[in-house]
């Protein structure tokens, strides 16, 4: 004979395996959990972290002073005599007899700094403009549409210029300095962030839950700030990560073109690449090393960004 309790116990046992958690997981936290399981994200994060740690600890990590021409008696660029990797200098010497490894390590500082600050600048200004335009449309009315139109036409003009050309002109106008590089690269990022945030806000403002909030009688301002903006940030954050990669490359490109930081007392990957150009036939490794680290950092940020895009995509959510 089976009793009612038996039945219920057995059923409970079978369903217990899937007991629901008492506390729900927010979207961000869940996205983070998925991110942790994604090998692409993990490798990207490892690369990025590695370079961050290198950049921060550079003075202690670098085996030698990157500017000290300790071995300049061994290198004769005019006679095409260079020194490759050896026991005391793992990556060899550069054209001025400085330790290449130390220069690469210390160079990470400036490259990453430029990348982060420039992207941060682009993100801040771009998100502000895009957010304003998006909010203006979201709040509605004729005025809103005007504000949006004005902002977006300015942004469109920025977008219409090739980004490198834009950066070059900014750098040329302001004169070369570290700040110039950051501003120049940042300016090229502004329209991307602005368009992205505005577009994503517009899409969200047509969604059903915004309609629902309207139907509830929630104030428009609160709808924009409480619903539309938070839900629009995902793609912008992804773009931010991806932009870090381009920012580093663009900063390098500016230095390469001679529009970088004129203060040469610190090594920087882009200018190292530029300098190496003259000795491409005699010492190609001097160009290859900075190029490789630029590529790897950019790859790291790209992997991380792509993985973030995947984990934030609501369609892929289970």
């Amino acid at each position: 004979m089976t009793t009612k309790t038996d039945k219920i116990d057995r059923l409970a046992e079978l369903t217990a395996a899937r007991a629901e958690p008492e506390h729900g997981l927010g979207l961000w936290r869940e996205a983070f959990r998925r991110l942790k399981r994604n090998p692409m994200a993990v490798s990207g994060a490892v690369i990025v972290l590695l370079f961050l740690v290198i950049a921060i600890l550079a003075p202690w990590l670098a085996p030698y002073d990157p500017e000290a021409r300790t071995w300049d008696h061994e290198v004769f660029q005019n006679q095409n005599i260079f020194v490759g990797p050896r026991a005391e200098n793992w990556l060899g010497l550069d054209n001025a007899g400085r330790d290449e490894l130390s220069r690469i390590i210390v160079g990470a500082r400036q490259s990453l700094l430029v990348g982060v600050v420039a992207t941060g600048l682009g993100f801040a200004v771009g998100a502000l403009l895009g957010g304003l335009a998006g909010a203006a449309v979201g709040l509605g009315g004729r005025v809103g549409q005007r504000v949006d139109a004005v902002i977006m036409r300015v942004v469109d003009m920025l977008l219409a210029m090739p980004s490198l050309l834009l950066a070059v002109s900014v750098a040329a106008i302001l004169g070369p300095s570290l700040l110039t590089v950051m501003v120049a690269v940042g300016v090229t990022q502004v329209p991307i962030f602005a368009r992205l945030l505005r577009g994503s806000m517009l899409a969200q403002s047509h969604s059903d839950y915004v309609l629902a909030a309207n139907a509830l009688g929630v104030k428009r301002r609160r709808i924009v700030l409480g619903h539309i903006v938070p839900n629009s940030l995902g793609p912008v954050l992804v773009q931010g990560t991806l932009s870090l990669a381009t920012a580093i490359i663009e900063a390098a490109a500016l230095s390469y073109l001679g529009l970088g930081n004129p203060d040469t007392s610190y090594p920087e990957w882009g200018s190292m690449l530029a300098d190496a150009q003259r000795f491409l036939s005699g010492a190609p490794q001097l160009a290859i090393y900075p190029a490789i680290v630029i590529i790897i950092t950019a790859l790291g940020f790209t992997l991380l960004g792509e993985a973030m895009r995947e984990s934030l995509d609501p369609k892929l959510r289970k």
């Binding site: 927010g26 839950y209 309609l211 509830l216």
Partner: peptide, 30 residues
């Protein structure tokens, strides 16, 4: 102000709920 007296239930149960709000916050908002 008057919207508390007229309410609406939507077709798409998922789309009409803000994915970033938990149930309490959804219900308290009104």
């Amino acid at each position: 102000r008057r919207r508390n007296r007229l309410q609406m239930v939507f077709q798409d149960p998922l789309g009409s709920l803000d994915p970033r709000q938990n149930v309490e916050s959804i219900l308290v908002e009104g």
